[in-house]
Computed example of a mutant assay.
Amino acid sequence: MGDFQDVLSANFQQLFEDVSDLCLPVDGHVAELSEVPSPTAFLRDWYSQNKPFIVRGAIKDWQAFKQWTPKYFRETFGEKPVTVAVTPDGYADAIAGEYLALPEERSMPMAQFLDILEEPSRHNGVFYIQKQNSNLTDELPELLNGVPSDISWMSEALDKSPDAVNFWMGDGRAVTSLHKDHYENIYCVVRGHKDVTLLPPASHGCVAVNYWYDMEFDVKFCYYKLLEGLSEAR
């Protein structure tokens, strides 16, 4: 039995290395583009090969890029309640020992959330707007005039509009746990920066799957889409 497991392990390791060689760039860096790809180029060069890429300056013409500042948020909807995740260490929806630890969710005015971000040492915990299920359209429609309704070249390539559009805001202590999404993602950074760690597809079998998180998110998202569909049918 031991010999069989050794052979199987060696074969999986070889598979991992082969697929990594195909997926990962030779220099270990994610490709950077100076302009957005055409729908055809996106499908041919990136989507079909399951490769990530970065487009520098892709959103520089968005109103949000010029307009979204703490001052603008305070003046435009400082009193609006927003849902904020609060954790002791910045890890929300994360495994803690044998348990899946979900964040505390608090509703507070946007101005109060900005106060916390500007002086984090005066508050216990890490505060992060991270609600999913299309919170931008559902909870923060005031921001929709600053962003397009979709990413046109990707919608054309995939022949569909986005299932969800989310707005996330926090400081450098907020961490997203390692996970696998079931959707194609575009992450647009309007202010600050986001560090992202990517693993090639072959690594999926080597990563502990957070079934609790996946199932809960899928149930919530499917329920959300069901209600959305029913409202449209009426």
Results as ranks from 00 to 15, higher is better:
112 Q>I: 00
169 M>S: 05
34 S>F: 10
55 V>M: 08
77 F>D: 02
49 Q>S: 14
34 S>Q: 15
32 E>K: 14
5 Q>R: 08
9 S>H: 14
185 N>S: 05
231 S>W: 04
75 E>K: 04
91 Y>D: 08
176 T>F: 12
195 D>A: 06
230 L>M: 02
118 E>D: 13
18 D>L: 08
122 R>D: 15
100 L>C: 10
26 V>Y: 14
68 W>G: 12
84 V>P: 06
225 K>I: 03
195 D>V: 07
228 E>N: 08
192 G>H: 03
6 D>P: 06
222 C>S: 09
169 M>Y: 09
38 S>F: 13
201 P>K: 05
185 N>V: 11
118 E>Y: 07
75 E>C: 00
109 P>H: 07
29 H>T: 09
53 F>P: 14
215 M>W: 00
106 R>K: 11
33 L>N: 13
180 K>Y: 02
67 Q>H: 06
27 D>F: 11
176 T>L: 12
121 S>A: 13
105 E>T: 08
163 D>Q: 07
163 D>C: 07
149 S>Q: 10
146 G>K: 11
116 I>Y: 14
184 E>Y: 06
151 I>C: 07
182 H>N: 09
143 L>G: 05
174 A>H: 02
186 I>L: 10
120 P>R: 07
219 V>P: 01
32 E>T: 15
6 D>Q: 15
207 V>N: 05
92 A>S: 15
153 W>R: 08
140 L>P: 08
41 A>M: 12
73 F>K: 00
89 D>L: 04
20 S>W: 07
95 I>S: 08
84 V>A: 02
11 N>H: 15
53 F>T: 11
22 L>I: 08
88 P>S: 05
54 I>S: 11
135 N>R: 05
15 L>N: 15
225 K>Y: 07
114 L>M: 00
226 L>A: 10
63 Q>E: 14
187 Y>T: 03
8 L>Q: 15
93 D>G: 11
130 Q>S: 11
32 E>P: 10
